[in-house]
Design a protein around this nucleic acid. Structure first.
Lengths: 188, 188
DNA sequence: TCGTACATGTAAATGGTTACATGATTCT
DNA sequence: AGAATCATGTAACCATTTACATGTACGA
């Protein structure tokens, strides 16, 4: 289960509560792994009971109390062991591609709006990633030189940027194809 | 559930058995949606009981009998309805990226072999996709002009090709980063 | 007063993976 | 005789999503 490992990485980068982890999974670590707060609370509880994490209950004024989790020895060992194992390369899971092929059995033009909407989401994500890159790695406020952890975060972010660029270009290709099919005779 | 819709698309492209669908999910449709035979048999049974599919039992000589499924009216309607709904853009799920960030808490060089292995898998997939493109869409044996269904299959395949190319380039970037970190002092 | 952010959880349903199970035919 | 391909399934487990549930504090 990679959620467990993603949590270990995130808590090693910085200890935090379930709520904070859920927020990180909406940005940063969430660029390549997603999880909802329900999942996170459940897994945190299990990991703590297995001795991979330590908890500190923090009382806060003007805020609900929170439980701050941090990685302890056995948790670090579990992560290290996982890093030494090989995983199988992911296969894609692209629902929009299913729809595009399905459009052959309906009017292809119904998909144009949908594809345009997805394209805009990817444009926004790209802008967001690029802003993060400038802020944390390449801008004047970024530390120089970067340490190993920052270099690795940066290369992962560059992957996200490359992915979004590629996706936008592909969706342009898809839109061109759908529009061509819409203006010429297309048998269902 | 997109597996259901992927099955509808695949069976509209060509009726077939659970076994045949499982094979298609290893290629073609499987380039962007995966499923094992266990999942497929379960879903086919459910879809048939819901009246989305029809079955024909075929006795074959020198082969086990098989059940050939095809899409009937209500199945087509379910697909069409889904095409008219909007879906939310996928977020990535890239386990290797979790590992790369995790490498900051171990020796980054342990990942070099792993990343090289992934890179080779993506190179092989790219070659496989390109061979398929030549065979079905751009080579001399390909039909001209392509019909709408083929145009859509082709644009999806171009997406797969773009994805693999992008991934290979990114993994080269990752390898460069890991090697640089391996040769300079890297604090854990 | 309404919405947003902070904070944590339970329950039910659905989806996906892994292991187990069987059996015929064809090719080497 | 053994491996690969064709063919279909069950069971157990694990992961994920969606809905429900509660409560404080702060700013508009």
């Amino acid at each position: 289960m990679a959620l467990e490992h993603a949590i270990l990485v995130s808590l090693l980068e910085k200890p935090g509560s379930g709520y904070e982890l859920a927020r990180r999974f909406e940005r940063s670590i969430g660029y390549f792994w997603t999880a909802t707060h329900q999942q996170i609370y459940r897994v945190l509880k299990r990991m703590e009971s297995e001795g991979l994490l330590a908890v500190r209950e923090l009382s806060q004024q003007s805020r609900p109390d929170k439980k701050e989790y941090s990685v302890v020895g056995p948790g670090r060992a579990v992560l290290s062991q996982w890093l030494h194992q090989s995983i199988q390369p992911e296969s894609m899971r692209h629902e929009l591609a299913v729809k595009i092929r399905g459009a052959a059995f309906d009017d292809p033009s119904v998909l144009i709006r949908e594809v345009e909407r997805h394209r805009q989401v990817h444009i926004d994500r790209l802008a967001h990633y690029q802003a993060g890159e400038l802020r944390d790695f390449t801008g004047p406020a970024a530390p120089t030189p970067l340490d190993a952890g920052q270099e690795l975060q940066h290369v992962v972010l560059r992957g996200g940027i490359a992915y979004e660029r590629m996706t936008i270009a592909w969706l342009d290709d898809v839109l061109g194809t759908l529009r061509r099919l819409g203006t010429s005779p297309s048998p269902a």
